[in-house]
Amino acid sequence: MAVKSQEERSIANEDDILDVRNSVKRVTALLNFSLVNQTKIISAASELARNTLEHGKGGKSIIQLVTEPERIGIRLIFEDTGPGIPDLARALEDGYSTGRGMGLGLGGAKRLMDDFDIESKENEGTRVTVTKWTEKN
């Protein structure tokens, strides 16, 4: 997998979530994702950005355009240096929430994207990486 381009955005307040969403939207449109997939990716980005803000006490997002021989995709990385997630398995369950959402953030984002990866260390931070692929055209 090769990274063609990337942009970084800090997530420090609610307006930044909107900025992340808009950047993601631009990249998905560029990659010719279908409207449904665009909506899925933007929603996943919004969920994860909100997690970074609320649970990670702020952090940054990296939006990447990635390629493989047969496919092209968007990869989103959300990083924070917050308290970390003590119980990962539980955090991925639906309905588990410590914030203002519906507790669907992590599990939901996982379902909306193709690849999902999470690393978290207590008191060090959390890093979530998600990717959605589309065929090259």
Binding site: L35, V36, Q38, T39, K40, D94, M102, L104, G108, L112
Partner: peptide, 14 residues
């Protein structure tokens, strides 16, 4: 509600 949103939030579990 647009179809794309209905599909997405169903997938999200809302």
């Amino acid at each position: 509600m647009q179809p794309a949103i209905a599909i997405t939030i169903t997938e999200l579990g809302i």
